[in-house]
Write a protein that binds this DNA or RNA. Structure first.
Lengths: 140, 140
DNA sequence: TATGGGTATGCAACTGAGTTGCAAAACATG
DNA sequence: CATGTTTTGCAACTCAGTTGCATACCCATA
């Protein structure tokens, strides 16, 4: 599998290649966990305006490059989407995992969302599963 | 089963019986869905201060009378706890359901949280399941 | 590689949710 | 009904997120 460059990923999604987009996307690629707006603001190295980061994250979500994760403490997290995700149609059926110890959030793409038996008359659409516990780094 | 009065529920939880607590608890008892802070503010009939509502909801959560629900759009919802919930130790393993049509949120206490197969090294604690779709009122 | 049109950025100012300190009012207890 | 404690309401504040607009940047074309 050929790893595309950051610029190529941006162009593929019909986005112009700018400093902020490159740095923020680079940060997500370097990080296998999920990131909050605040993490992005502090870890890009370069200081971008808050507004720019908000807009960049929003753009990435719209293009299906990243997706948002709902958390128990009601902060918004963002994580890279896998290839199945495309603009508009986001492939949401995967499990999110938050480590109680290191606080890192993972997208467990390999884990199948379990079926849920709903009461009569309820029809399921998207099922979000959020598991908290200990991750493979912290469970020793 | 004997239905306790609102005052009795408050006293049972070592809370003094005040207007705001009575009205807000009454609202939850009259409503089988979940409520946001905003809903409480608008539907109590009497106008309570925003701060009072925040503090009352927080108190109820601490006492295990209500619990919070994480939502995909990152707003905080509150819903009545069933009897198993007690102070500190909240019995969280139930499924939440958000209706795409009427936007109402339900606690499906009868539905068992499904088991999730995690990757090697991951240890599950609490599992939150959030299902979106159509509720029994809207699926016709 | 210089030019021009369109897009992205940064700044300032704003909104709205949630929090804190404190004095006044309401509650529980004897 | 008098007392001390708890709760309320107000004002002021913080912080996340949004919007409008002028400037800077990107990129396609010549």
């Amino acid at each position: 599998m050929i790893t595309p460059t950051i610029s190529e990923i941006l162009k593929r999604n019909q986005l112009s290649v700018t400093d902020s987009r490159k740095k923020i996307l680079e940060l997500f690629l370097a990080n296998n966990g999920a990131l909050a707006h605040n993490d992005v603001e502090k870890q890009t190295g370069v200081k971008f305006d808050r507004v720019t980061i908000y807009r960049t994250l929003q753009t990435f979500v719209e293009k299906g490059i990243i997706h948002t994760i709902p958390t128990p403490d009601n902060s918004i997290l963002y994580a890279l989407c896998k290839d199945e995700c495309s603009e508009g149609h986001h492939h949401d059926n995967h499990v999110h995992f938050v480590c109680d110890h290191c606080k890192k959030t993972y997208c467990l793409d390999g884990v199948v969302t379990p079926a849920v038996n709903l009461p009569l008359g309820f029809k399921a659409g998207v099922i979000e599963v959020l598991v908290t516990g200990l991750c493979n780094q912290c469970s020793n």
